[in-house]
Structure formats: C-alpha cells, structure tokens
Computed example of a mutant assay.
Amino acid sequence: MDLPGGVGEPFDVIVLAGGGARRLGGADKPALEVGGVSLLDRVLAACRDAASVAVVGPPRQVSRAVVFTREYPPGGGPVPALAAGLTVGSAGLVAVFAADLPFLDAEAVTVLRRSLTADAVLYTDARGKDQLLAALYRRNKLAAALEALPELRGARLFSVLNTLEVTRIPDTRGATTDCDTWDAVHAARALVATRLATKAKMEDMDDKKQLADWCAAAAAELGLTGHELTDADLDAILGLAGVAAHNVLRPAAPLTTFLAGYAIGLRSSTDGGRGALDGPIAKLSALAQAWDPATGTAAGPGRGGPVAGTVGGSVAGTPAATRDASAGGAVGGATGATASAAADSPAGDSTGSGGR
C-alpha cells in the first residue's frame, strides 16, 4: 500500500546549529536547556526516524549519533550551512530544522513527510510567514536551487525557494516556535515545566485509577463484593509495603501485606466483620522500622530499644521514621497516637480508630 506523501521514503535531516545568537548575547543557543534537555537534543529527538542527521555547527555532546560539519566559511550564513549539510547522507528527502525549536516533535516531522506533494513542504507560523528551517525538501531539487544561486555566502535563505514548487502548512501546534531571545527561552521553559507537571499529575491519577479498578475486579473475583478497599485502605497497604521493602528486603513487601490481610481475615470470624486494617498495619510497620537485618531481630519494648512510632499519617521525629516516610512509609488510616497505641497493644487486639 502506498503511504501518503513521503512517509514511506527514507529521509535525512540537516540541523543548523552554528548561528551567532546575537540576541542572546552570544550564548551557545543549541546547548541551552529547556525542561532539562538541550534545545539541540530536543530537535534530534523529534528526528528519531531519520536515516542520517547532519548538524552544521561546532561539535558538542548530543543524545544520538550525528555527523558534525561546518559551512564555508564558518559564520557564512544559513545558505552555506544548508549546502554543507547536503554533503551528508543520500536519502531522496531532506528535512531541515533550526536547532532552537523546543516544541518540535516526531508528529510535526511526520506531518511534513505526509504532506510532501511538490518539491518542498514547509510550515508557516501564526503570521503566515514561511519557516524554511522547519521544512522537508526533495534532495535533488534543493541541491539544484542552491546550485542556481550566484553565491552562497551572504545569500538570503528565502532565495532558495525561487525555483521550487512549495506546499505550505499552517503550524497550529507551535512546533516552529523558536528561542531567539531570552524572553522566548524563559517562556519555553515555563511552558515545558507546566506540561511536565500536568503530565506527572495525570500519570499519577491514571496509576491510582488502574489500581482501584484492579482491586475492585480482584475483590469481585474473590466474592468480596461490598468489601472493596477504599482509597485510604490502598494508601495504608502501599505505605506498609514501602516500609517493609525499605527497612527489611524488597520481597518482604508482598509477604508483610499478606500477613496483615491474613490477620484481619482470622479476626473477622470473631468480630463479625473483616476487621480494621489499622491494628495489623501499625504493628507490622513498627516492627519493620525497628528491624535489624544483621541480627534478624527487632529492637523495641522488651527487645532492648524503642520502636519508632510512625504509622498513619503522623511521623514521629526519629531518623528511622523520617527515612520511612520518604520511602512511601507514611501510612494512612490511623493517627500517630492511635498507631503507637496499636503497636503496644496485645497481639490480636485493635485499638485503631478506623474500624470497619
């Protein structure tokens, strides 16, 4: 099946990364970071499907294999840089990008490839201006256009279009937004930071929903409909798992949470219900925090030392308790006072306030 435009054809990429950045005070613009990633690496990531990538500019550390080359003479402008980039690779299609496009992505590159029906296809910005450094060209046509220029050095980039049939696409996603000024750099950083924070929040919400859906399905499978875990239950159990994994061993996490559930199940036949999570979780969390892997024993009341009292949202001011909270061990479902009481109560009793 034929794919639209040039999507089925191999393509090379030329990235122009040798400008003087005068409006940035001569800063190394391609190396400036946005969202913890250099501008150049952001452009390279968008070109992950390219057969080869030529970066026209000084060599620097980059995230993928590229060929560095320089225009002649160095600093001669974008047209000589374009000619230098064309000496790298052999694919029939050549994408050309500036090195300061923080929002260029693989989708924007694919749109160009899909839309190639003439000698070249390029994006136009919000003002309708042609973006020749966000474009895809047929190699032979671009080479002929450069050959037709009387002189490369100092030539205007727009003169390359004089002999080409060009398709234009409005940039509706901001892929051609560049970072020519410090204001633009700061704006890009702020926008990327907002996007990353939103993405992390959405991923966290998605994880919680998947856990809740799975637990509901598992409860139904086990005949526990009507006894599903609440959000507070999930937080408490996951917190206990974090404490056990951090203070004992990773495999202790599932075993410890199983033992907590097992204790609740045994008690349910005598108290008329499934029992409270707080008591077993408080006891096991305190035991895990006091655990000494070297001796295989725990320090605590009657064991030669105090048990750290942190379970249930209130963290006691001990080093062990603080460390556990950072590992996800601040366990919901009981107050700190209740948890301490539960840890000291006889086995099998529950003094937790979260009884069900």
Results as ranks from 00 to 15, higher is better:
S326T: 08
L234S: 11
A99D: 12
P251V: 13
D271Q: 14
L211F: 07
T225A: 14
D231S: 11
P280F: 04
R127I: 01
T297Y: 14
R250K: 15
D178E: 11
D28G: 00
E221V: 05
A241I: 00
S38Q: 02
M1E: 07
D235F: 10
H227N: 13
D49H: 15
S314I: 15
M1C: 09
L133D: 06
A343R: 04
V315S: 13
V43E: 08
L196W: 02
V307D: 12
Q61I: 12
A144G: 09
A341V: 11
F258C: 08
R22W: 13
G76M: 01
L32V: 07
G76T: 04
A27G: 04
G77N: 09
R303L: 14
L287S: 11
G20N: 15
A108N: 03
N162Q: 12
A144D: 04
D178H: 13
T297L: 15
E151T: 11
A260I: 01
S314W: 13
V88K: 02
V7S: 08
G174S: 03
A308Q: 01
G261D: 02
A308E: 06
T257E: 02
P4D: 07
A216D: 09
K208S: 10
A106P: 06
Y123P: 00
A299P: 09
E221M: 13
A50W: 05
R60I: 00
G354R: 14
F11Y: 15
A51C: 10
V15L: 08
L82H: 03
D180R: 13
D233P: 03
R168Y: 15
G312A: 12
